[in-house]
Computed example of a mutant assay.
Amino acid sequence: MNIAVTLTDSTTKFMINNLYPLYLHDLSEIWGNHPNQYGVFEDNETQTLNEQNKVFDIWWEKPGILYPYLIKEDGIPAGFALVATPPHTPPGCEFYLNEFFILRPFRGLGIAERAAKEVFSLHIGKWELQTNPTATNRRAQHFWRKTLKEYTGNNFQEECKKSFDDELKMIFNFCNG
Rank of each mutant, 00 (worst) to 15 (best):
L70V: 05
G39H: 11
N36M: 04
L49Q: 11
Y23V: 09
L70K: 01
H34C: 02
G75Y: 12
E45Y: 03
E45S: 13
I71Y: 03
N36H: 09
P21N: 14
D43G: 13
L27C: 12
E45F: 03
A78M: 08
T46E: 03
I58Y: 15
L70W: 02
N50C: 02
P77R: 05
D43C: 01
N50V: 14
P77V: 07
Q47M: 11
N50G: 03
E42Q: 10
L22M: 13
Q47P: 00
E42R: 15
P68K: 06
E29R: 14
K62W: 06
L22E: 15
H34T: 14
G39W: 08
L66W: 02
N53H: 12
P63D: 10
W59Q: 08
L49C: 00
Q52W: 06
Y67A: 07
G32F: 06
P21K: 11
H34S: 13
V55E: 12
K72C: 13
P63M: 08
G64P: 10
T46W: 02
Y67D: 06
H34F: 06
Y23T: 10
Y69A: 07
L70Q: 06
P63K: 03
N33L: 02
Y69I: 05
Q37H: 09
K54S: 09
I76M: 12
P68E: 07
A78V: 08
E73N: 13
S28V: 08
D57L: 05
P68N: 08
Y38P: 01
W59H: 09
Q37Y: 00
W59I: 14
